[in-house]
Design a protein around this nucleic acid. Structure first.
Lengths: 232, 232
DNA sequence: CCGATGCTTCGGCCATCACCGAAGCATTCC
DNA sequence: GGAATGCTTCGGTGATGGCCGAAGCATCGG
């Protein structure tokens, strides 16, 4: 079967440590330059260039040329989901739990970070837990659903869950097992909409060149008042 | 970050053509012996042995020793989902559509096959379509739900959707993009239960050592009467 | 017991590929 | 125009790892 070769090609593209680091850095959905990606992968720009062309022709990345910079981003949500699923297997496989935390940067990542287009980390899991506890969503390992009260909540917040317009039935969402918390957080269209809302409302903001996000004072207040999340 | 190495390790395990072939063959959820896997991968048993130990210590496979045979199977549903997601990216990436079909074996796979624990191929997609059209389930790209009428249908068929018992809310399911049809079919707990039911009722049966399944006369009749699927 | 079967380990060959230094294009700024 | 920046291509080196032949353990059958 020819599809087998394509499968191996895609998997091996993700299977190199340097490329894995780049893909990991791109998991927050933003576009980065070749030099930035070289730095996070710990290699020289020449080597990174080779990796990036391979990833691009392999269909994992898309490139956007802008002046003398070339911005790279994940080619599709499907790629992000693939990376998620690999991370999950890797997390199950490698439980060599180290000293609880390795540094402030890692600590920030565990507290709150983006996972492609939605929120993960302690904050992401706490939000999912709160929504489940309030009966606004229901989650299993495979899928999730927004209940009537959840739809009302999101509408109140001004979050539009039906960008396509042709939504007739119930809103569906998707769970995404958290790398650091080992518990599901909210992904899919609903997770993306919620994350976007938190960013535009200024409840959270991106931290430097990391996937971590910082919770603002306004965010602290809203997460507590709206979702009943005390400490983040 | 140390998790990065684990990620690359897992991905590179799936990234070798021979190992990819083995994993692909194991995607139907059954356990195969080392020799069988060597044959499908087109390599000698010694080489396969090395690959299998690597896959096992890497956490992708589990081994069950039985006499002088050693049965290998996917370590977890998470691994199956990972393989699915890689296949999906590979399918998006490699559209070098060949001559519509390459042979009868491939044709059988496209008609009906298992995908870990649920049904895929033309049959799987047709079932999903029929259930959606009848209003028994709702599906998006990310998630799915069983409606009230769907729950009644499954109960009528004698399919128990709540093996855990502690199900209080609605049954949730999961879409899985089909490799050959490029359209979603039914996965998750519901897909698995439906597939199991079809097998135990004798509607379909496994074909030799392939992932393909054959639709029996009884299956033809039931698929038409129950789901309104004419030709399979 | 002894041979056959299933699987593994060992040793050596070979191809692939990641890596960097150096040099070459393109773009922007002065 | 000339220098600096971002990125790429080229060439050569080194290491990883896939592959098989041969041999070594287990298990099943007679």
């Amino acid at each position: 079967m020819a599809s087998n070769a394509a499968f191996a090609e895609v998997a091996s593209l993700a299977g190199d440590p340097a490329r894995a680091g780049m893909l990991h850095a791109l998991m927050d959905g933003r576009a980065l330059t070749a030099t930035e990606l070289a730095r996070v992968a710990g290699i020289t720009p020449q080597t990174a260039s080779g990796h990036l062309t391979r990833l691009t022709v392999g269909g994992l990345l898309t490139v956007e040329k802008q002046g003398r910079h070339r911005y790279h981003r994940l080619a599709s949500p499907a790629v992000a989901r693939m990376l998620e699923s690999i991370m999950q297997v890797a997390a199950d496989t490698a439980p060599p739990r180290r000293k609880a935390f390795v540094g402030p940067r890692d600590l920030a990542l565990r507290a709150a970070r983006t996972c492609y287009d939605h929120l993960a980390g302690h904050l992401g899991v706490a939000l999912a837990d709160a929504l489940v506890a309030r009966g606004d969503i229901e989650l299993t390992a495979d899928a999730g659903i927004v209940t009537g009260s959840g739809a009302a909540l999101f509408e109140n917040l001004g979050i539009d869950l039906a960008p396509s317009g042709k939504r007739k039935g119930r809103m569906l969402c998707r769970p995404c097992l958290d790398w650091s918390e080992r518990r599901p957080h909210l992904a899919g269209a609903v997770g993306a909409a919620l994350c976007k809302h938190c960013l535009t409302e200024g409840w959270i903001k991106h931290v430097d060149g990391s996937r971590a996000v910082a919770i603002t004072a306004k965010g602290q207040r809203n997460f507590r008042e709206v979702f009943g999340i005390g400490q983040a």
